[in-house]
Design a protein around this nucleic acid. Structure first.
Length: 490
RNA sequence: GGUCGGAUGGCCGAGUGGCUAGGCACGGGUCUGCAAAACCCUCUACAGCGGUUCGAAUCCGCUUCCGACCUCCA
């Protein structure tokens, strides 16, 4: 029994989280298809599930966190018979498919690292699990839920839905899907191979021009998109694991199909809980190429995009994401990012301030209540915005303690320090971004500050202001505080 | 067209049938040679119209507007 509750998309209700075999927890999260640089939207999932990952560890669970890399099998669309995203890009750039996959996998990892996202326990690649996928497809065929046509294998949605509930996860009704299919002028090539237009590919026959292909019982080809997650989650986490996560846009058809594949294969639901995070929008709309409103992660961190007023740091982005609940859409704006930037700075500065606070004989801080409110917030379906609001309560307390407006007892101070740092750094996974300055720079700065202070004492303000202004022009800000002058490098 | 979800103060963004969300901005103040920074305090909003209720921003209905998914997508 844990206090953590999570919203299960499948059952559509908030449930108490009970791992199948405590203290072990198995989590599978759908990772990226590595055919391009990560963009702003790619940051949300990792951040959201990182908090889950970190919090479960904090609670003492032994977490196996699996996040796949899709490096093959993700069709550009059904009409595109014979090319997948990776191979298509490879041809354009005259590179090996694996080279492309590696390149963009690295850039994805860089993003994760910069945002202080814990590494996955296992990060399996679809191309490295072709055998497992073929075995699973064969079993689905043997069970009568898939059929072979001309070297391709399709999942028989209609037959499956006679025995099981296809569409439950995404709230779809099979009759509507069948009736609705082709209600517009969407004529897709290769559809004539399927018994029903809702059937999806488990294995696709590869044309000669197709670079990435493997031998299979049905001839040379490559796996469909959905089967990789089913095969790899089963391999590393078992037939039924605890939590499956991903973006809401994967609900249908990807996750719906994963469920169907797992049940058609072993008869079991793949995951006990399904968690889906919402999208990041720009001006209220999802980022899309057609809208020309995409922002890559590199652009975001460097400020080189027309939509950006300035560069934002990885932690600012992480904090921005955490300030909204994961199931709601989050709208990008410069004003919102800049607000997050300042708020984050205040939150992190408080941890420094906290180090310098000493205990008093008397206590005026109800710290246990505040800590409890923090746990209540994160237990309530990872409500990070409320958690952060409570942390800001602590910040105000910390600053008032520092200013001498409040007093705190030794025991209470210890609780405050332990929990504040635990929530900010261990659970939310924030970190101080400013590089620790080298001793030489630090010594240099102290020399300049000392010289400026001497000038100030002599009321030689033209000199003191000159030092301040010239440092400012190269991005070093001096801040005159109560207890001396400090500096920040921008 | 079908399915689903939203509309909260200047901006972002939580939330609950009655009790201050929080951040940023604004305003006031402390500090300061000046400035900046920092810190403290202040700022009571829930699309519209009906209904249920002692009481609704929170429940129900309708209206308007917006978005997502239905095809690749984090």
């Amino acid at each position: 029994m844990t206090a953590l509750k999570i919203y299960d998309t499948y059952k559509r209700e908030t449930l108490s989280f009970e791992p199948q075999k405590a203290p072990f927890v198995g989590i599978y999260v759908c990772g990226p298809t590595v055919y391009g640089f990560p963009h702003l939207g790619h940051a949300r999932g990792p951040v959201v599930f990182d908090v889950l990952h970190r919090y479960l560890r904090h609670l003492g669970f032994k977490v196996r966190f699996v996040r796949n890399i899709t490096d093959v099998g993700h069709l550009v669309n059904d009409a595109d018979a014979g090319e997948d995203k990776i191979a298509k890009k490879a041809k354009l750039e005259q590179l090996e498919p694996m080279e492309i996959a590696q390149f963009y996998t690295d850039s994805y990892h860089q993003m994760l690292h910069s945002m202080n996202v814990l590494p996955a326990s296992i990060e399996p690649r679809a191309s490295g699990h072709i055998i497992e996928q073929i075995e699973m497809i064969q079993e689905i065929i043997d069970n009568g839920f898939a059929y072979v046509v001309n070297g391709s294998v399709y999942f028989d949605v209609l037959n499956y839905s006679k025995h099981h509930d296809y569409g439950k996860l995404s709230g779809r009704i099979i009759e509507d899907l069948i009736a609705g299919a082709g209600n517009d002028a969407r004529t897709l090539e290769g559809q004539d191979e399927k018994r029903n237009s809702n059937d999806f590919a488990l294995w696709k026959k590869a044309g000669e021009e197709h670079i990435m292909q493997w031998n299979s019982p049905w001839g040379k080809g490559f796996p469909g998109w959905h089967i990789e997650c089913s095969a790899m989650s089963k391999k590393y986490l078992g037939e039924t694991f605890d939590i499956h996560g991903g973006g809401m846009d994967l609900l249908f058809p990807h996750h719906e199909s994963e469920i169907a594949q797992s049940i058609a294969c072993g008869g079991k639901q793949p995951a006990k809980y399904w968690m889906h995070h919402n999208m990041i929008t720009v001006n209220g709309q999802k980022m899309a190429k057609s809208l020309n409103n995409g922002i890559s992660i590199d652009e975001f961190f460097s400020g080189k995009n027309a939509l950006l007023e300035k560069a934002y740091s990885p932690m600012t982005l992480k904090f921005f994401i955490l300030q909204a609940h994961y199931r709601g859409t989050l709208d990008f704006s410069n004003a919102a990012l800049q607000a997050s930037e300042k708020g984050l700075n205040r939150l992190l500065s408080a941890s420094e301030t906290l180090k310098k606070i000493g205990p008093s004989e008397t206590n005026e801080v109800e710290i246990e209540k505040l800590v409890e409110k923090c746990y209540d917030a994160i237990n309530e379906d990872l409500n990070t915005p409320i958690l952060i609001a409570n942390l800001f309560e602590m910040v105000t307390t910390i600053n008032n303690l520092s200013a001498g407006n409040l007093k705190i007892g030794a025991k209470e101070l210890e609780i405050l320090q332990k929990n504040y740092n635990s929530f900010v750094f261990d659970i939310l996974g924030l970190k101080l971004e400013q590089e620790v300055n080298s001793d030489k720079i630090d010594g240099l700065m102290h020399m300049l500050i000392k010289m400026r202070n001497e000038a100030k004492i002599q009321k030689n303000y033209s000199v003191s202001d000159q030092i301040r202004n010239e440092l400012s022009s190269i991005g070093i800000e001096l801040k005159d505080g109560k207890d001396g002058t400090s500096y920040t490098l921008n």
